[in-house]
Design a binder for these strands. Structure first.
Lengths: 225, 225
DNA sequence: ATCTGTTTGAAACATACGTTTGAAGGTGGC
DNA sequence: GCCACCTTCAAACGTATGTTTCAAACAGAT
């Protein structure tokens, strides 16, 4: 029980601290002291701080991508020959994320926040690692989106997918703070699951909006259709 | 020409590096060497690295918030007693951002990326600084949004505003990379202005989506409406 | 009980950071 | 010309970081 204990304690502490403070802002000493583990243990078990970051992601991303593949399989089966709808596709993704086996009660929000950080804090090594490890389910998701929105031009689809990713990553990456603000302002308590459930209709509606292109006034005289 | 030259050179270099790499990942030595300025100049002219970050934001946020107030004034005048529509409000914001006097051609994307970072890299001091300096135009924008979406519950409006902010900040903050990817994939060239023009209909549609709340399956049996 | 390979521990290493110092340059006013 | 002030410069300071070292502790097998 020696090894796995130390390794897991490091992963737990690192996961939480990374989610709270970001990668650069979290030192190995913070991690090891929170994990009640010797400083050298990180480099012994993981080799480097960057590899530790990869390990933190792999620990939840690998089961997640497996769950996701199953959900997509199930979706393919259910819809048969005709393509899945946009809401079905988004919902499959959401359900997979929410259903993930959680280590702690904050598991899901840590998960989301880390994904957001991965996208935002453009750490080159992390992006490379994620791309080469999890490109398959990602590509499959993209294909489903394409089939679900045949009326969109490729260019519009491309940008709207970015908008979706942004809305999701951004909101989820600050979900804790945003939940607190809402509680203080309106006295409403919220879970990450509820946020996800609100997000899906928003994204689907934006994705399926008519393709009217507005043109920007070049200098003056702002008028709106 | 001595003082202003050094100060501006520092601000230019800092702005670009912060946008590229984030705050913690950018050292004063990188900034001063890019600006071809002595290391001590930053602490001499700005006092500290944090104050430099504030100065970088103030330099573009102050004129922007002035432009924005004017755009909102104009909008109020044009719509008279009845509230502005959602698209009008978003459009006023977009036009103000795009019309900002640019120092460089990349000005607008740097501007967006920094705003995104400010939201994401939860640097306590930055958030505090922005809140107390620019709360007025922000609050005014929020009020316009509220008037434009009277059918939304407060909670839904709150979350959908976060979704909008996320889609915008995220996309704009990576706009350079995303534009490159699109060019390589589909051979289409894009400007930041075009992205903004595509963003507005997406956001408006998402904001005005019907408020159906989907419920998440707790354990198994994923079925979608 | 002893040996072997693995894991922990305290300490040190080299490096990078933000900041401070004090002298040297430069500039305008008198 | 001299003085006062502002700005630049090279160097150093103290601290924090990721990583390495090597001896001690431990575990399981023989």
């Amino acid at each position: 029980m020696a090894q796995s204990d130390t390794v897991d304690r490091i992963l737990d502490a690192a996961e939480e601290l990374f989610a709270e403070r970001g990668f650069s802002e979290t030192s190995l000493r913070m991690i090891t002291s929170k994990a009640k583990v010797n400083l050298a243990a990180v480099n012994y078990h993981f080799g480097s701080k960057n590899s530790l970051i990869h390990a933190v992601f792999a620990r939840f991303l690998t089961p997640f991508s497996a769950t996701l593949e199953l959900a997509f399989d199930e979706l393919d089966e259910r819809t048969g020959k005709q393509p899945a709808t946009l809401e079905q596709t988004l919902w499959a993704l959401t359900v997979s994320a929410v259903r993930m086996p959680q280590r702690t009660e904050k598991g899901i929000s840590i998960f989301m926040r880390l994904l957001g950080l991965a996208y935002t804090q453009s750490q080159g090594h992390l992006r490379k690692f994620l791309e080469q490890e999890y490109s398959q389910p990602f590509g499959r998701f993209m294909n489903l989106l394409k089939e679900a929105t045949p009326e969109l031009s490729s260019v519009d689809r491309y940008w709207r997918i970015q908008f979706m990713l942004g809305a999701t990553a951004f909101t989820m990456s600050s979900s804790d703070a945003l939940i607190d603000i809402l509680e203080n302002k309106l006295g409403v308590e919220t879970t990450v699951q509820e946020i996800a459930a609100r997000l899906v209709p928003f994204l689907a509606a934006g994705m399926e909006a008519p393709e009217k292109m507005l043109t920007l006034p070049s200098v003056s005289g702002a008028s709106v259709a």
